[in-house]
């Protein structure tokens, strides 16, 4: 899956200490510890982790917004800490908090940012593409979360970057905005842009990412394509065999006797069931035959392997943090 071209971003053994903190008796806190990752052109690379895992700090070190304590970072072949205007013009950044002036209006703001580049995107086309025209007369302060995110994405894109950083891009997005933003991200990826995003939402990573790094406690614990992560059980370090079948059907729990041993059956509420375990094709046939004999038609039927959420919880533990 990895491209032979030079990566847009290589992070090797990143360390970031913050502090000194009064809450730690004046000691430094290590928020990123030996984190390494590679992001390629034409791919969406996702940093997946809980809040406080070190995702934003990692991104900000790569963007030159924070100075790293140790390790090396190559951003388009250069060190972000010594980045000049040439390098910055090739990097698009969407910050988690937007970073847009509250009194600004969307289109003058985009034209202003576009003025920093020699060959910016056509602002009108960008406005059209992200539906910014609908709220072009509203100041940033009065925009909804989704509108703000779309504007921040436009501001990050307007310079035609080769690498695009998106910190929690779907935060605050309504379903329509989310579709719009995800479609655009996929289009930019297909056009060859390298996209690095952070998210704590498994669904985002499953839908968008070509390659996922799961970050926990400041370092990368597992990496791979979404398919690779789903196939492998990290808790037991073996291939995944467990699946869950969910269905809604009348007829009560009498089907249990027909199934093979070792499957766990749960009635989640009256008429809704889940069967978990090493479900075989024969188990499926048995169940559907049992329905056929009784002329029962299930209202819903869904078979799932592990979700990225399961993978994530296996790795980072199920404790509340």
């Amino acid at each position: 899956m990895r491209s032979p071209e030079s990566p847009v971003l290589t992070i090797d053994g990143l360390i970031k200490d913050v502090g000194p903190l009064a809450s730690l008796d004046g000691k430094m806190l290590r928020v990123v510890s030996e984190l390494s990752l590679v992001a390629e052109r034409g791919q969406v690379t996702a940093l997946l982790g809980a809040n406080g895992a070190g995702k934003t700090t990692t991104l900000e070190c790569a963007q030159g917004l924070q100075k790293r304590t140790g390790g090396s970072i190559s951003l388009l072949g250069a060190d972000p800490d010594t980045a000049g205007a040439d390098l910055r013009s090739r990097v698009g950044v969407m910050l988690q908090d937007g970073g847009l002036p509250p009194s600004a209006r969307p289109i003058p703001l985009l034209r202003h940012v576009a003025g920093m580049y020699k060959n910016p995107m056509d602002v009108d086309a960008l406005v059209e593409r992200l539906g910014i025209g609908q709220f072009s007369r509203t100041s940033v302060r009065r925009l909804s979360g989704g509108q703000k995110q779309r504007l921040a994405l436009a501001a990050a894109l307007v310079g035609n970057p080769e690498i695009l950083f998106l910190d929690e891009p779907s935060a605050g997005l309504d379903p329509q905005s989310r579709q719009m933003v995800f479609d655009l991200i996929a289009e930019l990826r297909d056009a060859g842009m390298g996209i690095v995003l952070t998210t704590h939402l498994m669904d985002d990573a499953e839908r968008l990412a070509d390659y996922v790094y799961i970050i926990d406690g400041g370092h990368n614990v597992v990496e791979g394509t979404v398919a690779e992560l789903l196939r492998h059980d990290h808790a037991t370090d073996s291939a995944v065999t467990e699946r869950t079948l969910y269905f809604d059907a009348p007829g009560g729990l009498d089907f249990v006797g027909a199934l093979g041993a070792g499957l766990q059956v749960t009635e989640t509420r009256s008429g809704s069931y889940s069967i978990t375990g090493a479900i075989t094709p024969k188990d499926l046939a048995t169940l559907t035959a049992w329905w056929a004999e009784r002329n029962i038609m299930p209202a819903s039927l869904r078979l799932e392997a592990r979700s990225l959420e399961d993978v994530f919880l296996d790795i980072s533990g199920r404790d509340l943090r």
């Binding site: 205007a85 013009s89 580049y117 060959n119 995107m121 894109l157 035609n160 930019l188």
Partner: peptide, 20 residues
């Protein structure tokens, strides 16, 4: 190729950026 995206041509000149 995306209709929006065009090749990156670098930054505007420093005086232009400061004026802007």
């Amino acid at each position: 190729m995306s209709k929006l995206l065009s090749p990156n041509a670098g930054p505007a000149s420093l005086p232009r950026r400061i004026m802007q």
